[in-house]
Structure formats: C-alpha cells, structure tokens
Write a protein that binds this DNA or RNA. Structure first.
Length: 224
DNA sequence: GCGTGATCATTC
DNA sequence: GAATGATCACGC
C-alpha cells in the first residue's frame, strides 16, 4: 500500500481512502510513505496532520482554503483519548484583525472552513509512543442548524469586538463553541490591528479554535 | 509575516 | 487536571 498520487475525485473516494488507513498506526503509515518518524511532537506539532494529508491525497501547501477545494471538504485530524474524547482544541483559521468590513457569518472564513469537515481522529495520548498511535475511522460532518447558530453567535461576538478595536480585551474564555487564542511562531510576531480610537496598533496574531466540548459532542454522536 | 499543520507548557 | 496563552516547523 502506498499514498495516492492524485486528489480524491469524490467524497466517496475520499472516504474509501480513509477506510483504507483506518486502524493503522502512524508508524506504519509513515514507513509505507517513506516519511521519517520524529521521536515526539515537541518540535513537529503538525506532523500527524501532514502525514494524513499525504495519505488522503490533499494538495500540499498552505492555501487559506479547504484541503479538498474541488469537493468543498476540509480535513481535520483530531487527537483523542481512549474514550474518543478530544485531547486538544481544533484550529480553524486566522482571525482577521485589521479592517475587515462587510464580512458576515455567511461569508466568513470560519463558516467556509467548517461547512464540511472530514474528521480523522487519532490516538493522541502522550503515553502512547507516536509510532504506535492508531488512526480511527474518518467521517464527514457538517454543522446542523443548532451548531451553526452556536458558531455564528460566538463568531459575531468576537468579530464585533475586533471591529470595535477591542482585540486586546478578547480572552480565550469567551465563546461557547468557538474562541480566539494567539496563533504565531512566537510572542515576537506582530500584526496590524485597530484600537478603540481606530488607530493602528501592533498585536499578536490570533486564530479561531473550536473548543473541546464542541468537538467532543461531534465525536460522541459518531462513536458514542 | 501569513497561513498551513497543530501541540506544548505554564497558569489557573 | 484542564484550559489558556505560547510556541514549533515549513513554504512562500
């Protein structure tokens, strides 16, 4: 077995690729793909995600769109414990901080990214050696009306604060499903934002993340 | 620096 | 122990 050389042609094709790797360990997938296995993830935090992208035929690169644009599907690997509960929050996308005007929930990056997600849970317990961690069954998810509403309310609240120049007042404690946290290579990285007087300021870049409680409910519906 | 892939590690 | 705030690697 080898990683595919072409993108999946349909959602069914993509799901079939998931089925083909379900139950295999990251070590097995890495050696079959001739990818080196890091000792741990401390300096390779995105490694599992990159490996799975390769196995599903996602086009490599850092485009700000979905992983499978022709299918309208975003891929998210998610580390889980033995009870299929998420061990980490899920990064969605950058939070625009400088003069985003006229953007609504319907046209937001967050909604676009979450319109249709292929969740691929993997064992993430730090006690399990990285190479031994197995991949679970991937599944497609789209937010239902209640989830969409929950996400929209959080997004609108946070986006309004940014628009009012209150970026610095935003805390990760805000938001039921979606929240904002720093997202950068280090605390030295700065980007443009606006203060309450509409003046340009420099602040740490932020990103939107899904809370564990939100993704836990999604996983529970599938595996619970 | 932006945006991708995220997890780490300090604080609560 | 969990959540928040901070950080690591890579391509361009």
């Amino acid at each position: 077995m080898q990683p595919p050389h072409t993108p999946p042609t349909s959602a069914d094709d993509l799901l079939a690729r998931c089925q083909a790797i379900a139950g295999l360990s990251l070590g097995e997938l890495a050696s079959l793909a001739n990818v080196a296995i890091p000792a741990n993830l401390q300096r390779h935090k995105g490694w599992p995600g990159m490996l799975i992208e390769k196995w599903l035929g996602a086009t490599a690169g850092s485009k700000p769109q979905q992983d499978f644009p022709e299918l309208g599907i975003e891929l998210k690997t998610i580390p889980i414990d033995a009870a299929f509960r998420p061990l980490e929050t899920t990064y969605v996308c950058y939070a625009p901080l400088a003069g985003q005007t006229g953007v609504t929930w319907e046209t937001s990056n967050v909604r676009n990214k979450l319109q249709q997600v292929l969740w691929l849970p993997l064992e993430g317990d730090r006690q399990i050696p990285l190479a031994d961690r197995r991949v679970a069954s991937g599944f497609l998810w789209s937010p239902d009306a209640a989830e969409d509403l929950e996400l929209r309310q959080d997004w609108e609240e946070l986006t309004e604060m940014i628009a009012l120049g209150k970026v610095e007042a935003i805390t990760a404690r805000q938001g039921n499903a979606l929240h904002i946290r720093p997202k950068a290579a280090s605390g030295k990285v700065l980007t443009d934002a606006l203060n309450e007087d509409g003046e340009r300021i420099q602040t740490r870049p932020r990103g939107f993340y899904l809370r564990k409680s939100f993704t836990e409910a999604i996983l529970a519906r599938m595996f619970g």
